[in-house]
Design a binder for these strands. Structure first.
Lengths: 244, 244
DNA sequence: CAAATAGTGTCTATTAGACACTATCCA
DNA sequence: TGGATAGTGTCTAATAGACACTATTTG
């Protein structure tokens, strides 16, 4: 295949992160304001180039995640999302970006004095409706990340990643409602979640709220694939498939 | 973020294809025998480096697919599978491979005299059980591709991509049985598939077999996302999640 | 006719979804 | 006590899965 003296072209490799969390029962994504060209002043996903030629790609993503969220990245959910490498997506040259989806429980505000200075949580709705201008193809990456999260709530235990280590069933319901953008019946949700074996398991004593009956606490169970799945109420139209 | 004189490291970019098809009711994957080092003599996925620095990644995958299958790649299903870029996966340097999953209807034997000379369909079972030795991390890539196909049969119309443009319901059932490795009740399958709106639509007159009642022909319908999904009979144990 | 494959009917246990109710806290 | 949130019971329509049957071809 390779001719004798031909050598393959080289590209710059970057990682970008779609970090999602819930704030005030709304889905938010972490964005940073770009200080330098290209796209100076626009919003962008946290991310950056590989630091050196031996750095592992997932390690680079974990490094960025830790810098941006100031949390131990080991405890956060992080998964590969896709590759974005159209030839002219970055005017500096051929840059191929490996995108990751990260899910975080509610975090403190982005802390100044770190790489995350200038980072802000933005409501996903506002981003998806075009209310912000995003650098490069980052709008598309956010769209893909959100769609991935929506899909994975159905058949995986991803929702628990939005919660702290212990959570109530109502809190878990809020995750589904925020990510799917719908309301669910709390009574049916309660039983459905408990009957899906391995999804959540009891964890310690009840948590008292300001008012009302104290709620039982749970933690994520051993199953990462839910069977039966949580079903998202049908929307009649068909979505764009995942083909290219 | 970037220091003034620092420039990011560069990597070589490759594409690799997991091309699946059905032969004799068994799932097969297309492999080529490597003629040159590294891993000379081992089996590998079809693929190769980007040809030039401006080549689009998906275009490179389509180019490889056309070379290997000798079919118009536009008619085949092709989707992004994942990125495999561990620092020392390739002894020639830092090679990051973007893997694609392709699904093909039954094809003629790989034709000599093209790039596909030396390419052979191998039963997936044999590959997954370690019966062949695969170069690089290609075994892992095949595993991921097969698992993706298994999962997507449930909630997408991917199964139709294994069939020709027209097919019978029994042929479609064979796809599910081969990919999932189980038997299905033809009577329930028949109704299930027809009641999943937009999955398949009638296409032309019946096809006569050597014996038995002629079967109605169908083609793929407009829905790419199935609702309700085809449910894969539960296996009690949990699979490895998709986390990293 | 028999053999083979295609397609339909029907019963039952399970489930999703609607909704009324009871339980346990605070003030 | 009332207000608020947590958790349970129960009915019904729809569905998955088991399996008996009818339909249409070739030889």
């Amino acid at each position: 295949m390779a001719e004798d003296r031909w050598t393959p072209p080289e590209v710059m490799l970057a990682v970008d992160l779609v970090i999602l969390t819930l704030r005030e029962s709304l889905l938010h994504v972490l964005l940073v304001r770009r200080g330098i060209d290209p796209y100076a002043g626009a919003w962008a996903l946290p991310g950056g180039f590989l630091q050196h030629v031996e750095e592992d790609i997932t390690a680079a993503a974990r490094r960025e995640l830790a810098e941006e969220t100031a949390m131990e990245a080991e405890t956060l959910h992080l998964e590969h999302l896709g590759v974005y490498g159209a030839p002219h997506r970055d005017p500096r040259g051929r840059v191929v970006s490996v995108a990751f989806l990260a899910i975080a429980p509610r975090l403190p505000e982005p802390t100044a004095g770190t790489d995350a200075a200038g980072a802000q949580w933005q409501p996903v709705d506002r981003v998806l409706s075009g209310g912000l201008d995003l650098a490069f193809d980052h709008l598309r990456i956010v769209e893909d990340g959100v769609e991935r999260a929506r899909a994975k709530l159905e058949y995986s235990s991803l929702a628990t990643a939005f919660c702290g280590p212990k959570f109530t069933i109502t809190e878990l319901q809020r995750v589904y409602e925020a990510v799917w953008g719908i309301r669910l019946d709390p009574r049916n949700f309660y039983r459905k979640v408990q009957r899906t074996s391995g999804f959540i398991v009891a964890a310690g004593p009840d948590r008292k709220g300001a008012t009302g009956r104290p709620a039982r606490l749970f933690k994520a169970g051993p199953q990462q694939v839910l069977n039966p799945p949580m079903v998202r109420p049908v929307s009649p139209s068909n979505s764009r498939g995942s083909e290219q």
